[in-house]
Design a protein around this nucleic acid. Structure first.
Length: 1084
RNA sequence: GGGCGGAUGGCGGAACUGGCAGACGCGCUGGACUCAAAAUCCAGUGAUGGCAACAUCGUGAGGGUUCGACCCCCUCUCCGCCCACCA
């Protein structure tokens, strides 16, 4: 060692050596077990490497380096997710070819990453824009097309009328075009779709087989949105057929359902237990019943119930002529894309895409439309059928409503407090199959056309949305679920008989002072409202009035309201010596005057009258289990009870719990052909088209004769044509590719006739959906990757990335991998064994770093000023890895000082630079003799650092190394062995300084070829421990004790303490709690 | 509205499974070195009271469980992220 720590000198030196030695290459033929570390490959933006990239890359670099030292052959690859909007926009602005921009940016990123000293296998670098790469992206698309997972459908896209281009969702800010600020519109366009919904169940269930952070699993599950429920068929009465004749298809013949004059609305519900409370039915504006339009490409393949979501008569053959007989027959409990040969047709609307602003950090896996926006139109083509509004008498009004809905922007539909609107369909009624009751039918936009069946049974008593709608349109509210309570004060007693009764609580208010009439019982310590039973067939209000009169004599009451539905409570009725199951209705009255009739002596003997204000009721011990419900409802929290409970007024199902009732009611419906249990997913198919230049061309042509024809695999890669100048999309919203006639016009691979190329390109999620496979065999020209190599490396053992990618990217890539697994390409069903996430690095002040704010930190500056090792260790030390953290320069100084101190430790080495052989071959070499304090600390540090790395607690790992260095500094001398062990612990964090010091120790071999230190158990055993003595839980003293000290020893020693004696103050300890090895607590 | 996460000194953050709150780092204060400064080193650093030993208080607020609570339970406030009329 010569003098000062100079990272500017040693860092490039070691980087060059490692590269020269191929130190971090993965070996396909290695004997060692493999370990595949993956980070999300960056989008090479013009802004250069973000400080956040360094944090996540360093974390995985630490794991990769540790794994190598643990004897694994590690694959830690890197590449570029280089298709994407910023590059394209830059090209539009400057006219520079995106390929050139990409080249410059990747060069810069590569240079920056290499300066940090990451142990990437650079020989496997990939780039999604490289034809040798996207050849296989296109190939996968063709396989999906073959298996019927890729299809075309009409979709709404965001459209800027001023810029005349389609906008990705992230380009629409608050409903406006990001660039020009004009209001974005929706425009219908035919789009390529990928049927990810066919994999919904497996994507959901297989999460059980992988080791992802729980929060990631939760997000994935929520996104997939599995819900169990039931389809219920409501027959439409008064339905009038019209206009069958003008259909150009024989829909009757192709309709799978036996035709009769009954038509149905099918609703999806998760709460079939509330079916008796249904007082109307609502269909979405998009629903076929009111569109009255027959559509194709609807639903098929995405639903797992036996009937389509619209009128049975609406069924028509799909556009491909496959016949709608197929429709609905797919059973997706075991989806097998291998079998799915038909083009599944467009269930058009997609789910809400969320673009999660990841800033420039994290990775580029961030663009595109993602899954389609919710609430957009179904991909439908009108081919004939009924005329609009069949059977609907107020069709004009209905159509006006629908038109209005269409005009509403996405914003309006979700903003403005979401007041519910709708129109009743006059002339038709729906029949509730469980009780034969006719209920009205509405169209309302609070029902979504693309979820479930596009129709709901409305149960206002038990659904807040239905409730709001029912209130507004004055529809009946029927309570059929009772909350269930057990009275805690008088719980039911075992062995007593149970009696179920309908009861009332009368809440009688005196308008003079606002107080309520209560009863104070004489033989029991009770205060109650006026309580009583409801006679068979008696009206609850009448019953309540009667009870008030009988018990108190007040006779002139005005009925105010009934407080929601019944509440069931179980309690022990001491005055009757029996358990009661009381189904209680609360009725509110006001006194018109204080007229009182005489009360029988018997009643008068039982209780006396008490007037209590609401506050008193709340504070006094009322004997009323239902009190909380009554108070809430009195205060205007209307009686919508949305939880599970006990059924009431539900025919033979009354008395069942909600969950029992769901089973039994759906079983009954199914046995009668009126419904069945189903599972639904919120997940929508993936909109896969972009009207952009800088993406993978979709490798199909449109032939006048043959329709959509896939390119043969031999024609791949289909490369982008050169464009002079304009990379802007066309005025029509088509991709810029559409402008290049020489490229568009081609011949059909099937018939040789004229054909035009598809001009849409793929979203840049495409390239990132399978890149982890390509790393394994990145130069293979004849296959996506060699199957043997795939088998060696897959699955990815550890994949770390940002939470912003847990829904879209993670789901897309799992989907593609599963598809590739199904067609025999990928060796594992799940691509990633383990997934963790990092927190973002924010700018100082906790805001996002952005060019416009001028608060972007350039890693080059930090490396120049402090060194890569300092930057790395600081980013690990600054805070918990999984939490967002604000950047601050302050801590950097401390990290640099730490490395300086490490450097200086070399001066204390006992055998400085004296040996050419490796003095630290065996990490446990020096465990003989009496372990010193330093030995023990060293070995504890080995344990701490090892464990912390595995748990990604890098901050505390660094802290424990600092503690060790602080202690080593105080030693007069340090053994080479001890220092060597420490260097190995440090090496994954700050590899250059560790390697340099290691070489200075006289080692000729890289520190990364040594083994990861293992702690000697002997060194971890302490012979004395510090025992804390507390009195009443407050620490008063401590003492050293042997680890073998018995409880009695500890107790005696603790009680002998002067300080304890002082706090005992002569009193005898009541109790002494002894936790061996830790503390003694004296209780007085 | 729903889900997830968070709140600890002047600051970033520690605290295993309920057992000495504030590790480690930054900053600050004092000292050493220096003509001086930087760098480095040493000591101190939660608040309050006290010359001090020491005592009391203290982990967003309020309750509870416990011998003992940053940690578990209940209620609430605030912050972040994600989703959001999903039947």
């Amino acid at each position: 060692m010569d003098g000062r720590y100079n990272p500017g000198e040693i860092e490039p030196k070691w980087q060059a050596k490692w590269e020269e030695q191929g130190a971090f290459l993965a070996h396909d033929d290695s004997e060692k077990p493999k370990y595949y570390c993956l980070i999300e490959f960056p989008y090479p933006s013009g802004q250069g490497l973000h400080i956040g990239h360094i944090r996540s890359n360093t974390a995985m670099d630490i794991i990769a380096r540790k794994r190598r030292m643990e004897g694994f052959d590690v694959l830690y690859p890197i590449g570029w997710d280089a298709f994407g909007l910023p590059t394209e926009n830059y090209a539009i602005k400057t006219g520079i070819h995106p390929r050139e921009v990409t080249r410059q940016n990747t060069d810069n990123f590569r240079r920056q990453l290499k300066r940090i000293g990451f142990s990437f296998d650079w020989s496997r670098e990939i780039n999604t824009t490289d034809p040798g790469y996207f050849k296989w992206t296109q190939w996968i698309f063709l396989q999906m097309l073959k298996k019927g997972l890729a299809y075309k459908a009409k979709m709404l896209i965001n459209w800027c009328p001023s810029c005349k281009i389609g906008l990705a969702n992230e380009e629409v800010i608050d409903g406006k075009c990001e660039r020009c600020g004009s209001e974005a519109e929706k425009r219908e366009k035919e789009q390529w779709m990928l049927a990810i919904t066919k994999y919904a169940e497996r994507l959901h269930d297989d999460l059980d087989t992988v080791d992802y952070l729980e929060k990631i699993k939760i997000q994935q599950r929520n996104w997939i949105g599995r819900s169990e429920g039931a389809i219920v068929k409501f027959r439409i009465s008064n339905f009038e057929f019209r206009n069958r004749s003008n259909s150009d298809v024989d829909w009757i013949a192709t309709s799978k359902t036996p035709r009769n004059d009954e038509e149905y609305i099918e609703v999806f519900t998760t709460r079939v237990d509330t079916l008796f409370g249904c007082t109307y039915v609502v269909v979405a504006p998009e629903h076929a019943l009111i569109r009255g339009q027959i559509t194709v490409n609807r639903e098929q393949g995405t639903d797992d119930f036996s009937h389509p979501s619209v009128l049975n008569t609406g069924q028509l053959p799909s556009g491909r002529g496959a016949g709608s007989g197929e429709q609905g027959t797919d059973d997706f409990s075991h989806p097998s894309p291998r079998k799915a040969e038909e083009l599944p047709s467009g269930r058009g609307a997609g789910s809400g895409e969320q673009i999660v602003g990841s800033g420039e950090q994290g990775t580029s896996l961030r663009q595109g439309y993602g899954m389609a926006k919710q609430g957009t139109a179904n991909g439908e083509q009108i081919v004939g059928g009924m005329e609009p509004g069949v059977g609907i008498k107020n069709w004009e009004e209905v159509r006006a409503y629908i038109d209005e809905t269409k005009k509403k922007s996405e914003m309006d539909r979700t903003a403005e407090g979401r007041e519910k609107t709708g129109v009743r369909l006059e002339g038709i009624m729906a029949v509730n199959p469980i009780n034969g009751e006719e209920v009205p039918v509405f169209v309302a936009d609070y029902v979504l056309g693309d979820y479930g069946t596009g129709a709901v049974m409305a149960v206002p008593a038990h659904d807040t949305r239905d409730f709001a709608f029912a209130k507004k349109y004055d529809l009946p509210i029927r309570n059929v679920i009772m909350p269930h309570l057990i009275d805690k004060k008088n719980p039911p007693r075992e062995g007593k008989k149970s009696v179920e009764r309908n009861t009332i609580h009368a809440l009688v208010k005196n308008p003079k002072d606002g107080k309520f009439l209560c009863l104070e019982w004489k033989n029991h310590p009770w205060i109650t409202f006026i309580v009583g039973g409801v006679e068979e067939g008696e009206d609850v209000v009448e019953a309540a009035k009667r009870e008030v009169l009988e018990e108190t004599g007040f006779s002139n009451l005005e009925y105010v309201e009934t407080l929601g539905g019944k509440v069931q409570s179980e309690y022990f009725a001491a005055h009757k010596d029996e358990n009661r199951i009381a189904n209680t209705t609360a009725v509110v009255f006001e006194l018109r005057d204080e007229t009182r009739e005489p009360v029988t002596e018997e009643e008068a003997a039982k209780h006396s009258i008490l007037w209590l204000s609401l506050d008193e009721i709340r504070n006094r011990e009322m004997t009323c289990a239902e009190l909380d419900f009554w108070l809430a409802r009195l205060e205007g929290n209307e009686g919508v009870f949305i939880d599970d409970g006990i059924l009431t007024d539900s025919g033979t199902f009354s008395g069942l719990s909600s969950s029992e009732a769901r089973e039994k009611i759906s079983a009954k419906l199914e046995s009668e052909g009126n419904g069945k249990k189903v599972v639904k997913y919120k997940l929508r198919d993936w909109v896969f088209s972009r009207q952009r230049y800088w993406g993978e061309p979709i490798p199909v042509v449109h032939c006048e004769k043959c329709g959509i024809v896939a390119l043969p695999e031999s024609a791949l890669p289909l490369e982008l044509p050169e464009i002079d100048g304009g990379y802007s999309p066309t005025d029509t919203g088509e991709s810029p590719l559409a402008k290049i006639a020489s490229w568009v016009n081609t011949t059909c691979p099937t018939c040789g006739g004229p054909a035009s190329r598809e001009t849409d390109t793929m979203p840049n999620w495409a390239g990132s959906s399978w890149y982890f496979l390509r790393y394994i065999d990145p130069r293979n020209d004849s296959a996506l990757a060699d199957p043997e190599k795939l088998k060696r490396y897959m699955p990815v053992d550890w994949y770390n990335g940002g939470m912003e990618h847990t829904t879209l990217h993670l789901l897309y890539s799992r989907f593609w991998n599963k598809f590739l697994y199904d067609i025999g390409v990928a060796p594992t069903s799940e691509p990633y064994q383990k997934r963790t996430s990092h927190g973002l690095i924010l700018a100082e002040g906790g805001v996002k770093m952005s060019k416009s704010k001028g608060n972007v930190i350039n890693p080059d500056d930090i490396v120049s000023d402090f060194g890569a090792d300092t930057l790395r260790i600081y980013e690990m030390f600054m805070g918990p890895f999984d939490q967002p953290i604000a950047w601050g320069e302050n801590g950097l100084v401390g990290s640099r000082r730490f490395l300086e101190r490490v450097w200086k430790l070399q001066e204390k080495l006992t055998t400085h630079n004296s040996s050419a052989t490796s003095p630290c071959a065996d990490p446990l070499a020096k465990t003989s003799g009496q372990p010193t304090k330093i030995d023990r600390l060293l070995h504890r540090t080995i344990v701490k650092v090892s464990e912390d790395i595995e748990a990604m607690r890098f901050n505390t790992a660094v802290s424990s190394m600092m503690i060790l260095v602080n202690a080593l500094e105080k030693e007069p001398s340090i053994s080479n062995e001890a220092f060597g062990i420490f260097l190995r612990l440090l090496s994954p964090f700050s590899p250059h300084i560790a390697e340099e010091c290691w070489a200075e120790l006289g080692n000729t071999e890289s520190i990364f070829l040594t083994e990861w230190p293992v702690a000697d158990p002997v060194m971890l055993v302490e012979d004395t421990v510090k025992i804390v003595v507390s009195v009443n839980g407050k620490v008063r003293d401590t003492f050293e004790a042997s680890v073998e000290a018995t409880e009695d020893d500890l107790k005696a020693k603790a009680l002998a303490s002067d300080k304890v004696a002082k706090f005992l103050d002569g009193r005898e300890p009541k109790r002494v709690i002894i936790i061996p090895g830790k503390l003694v607590n004296v209780v007085v």
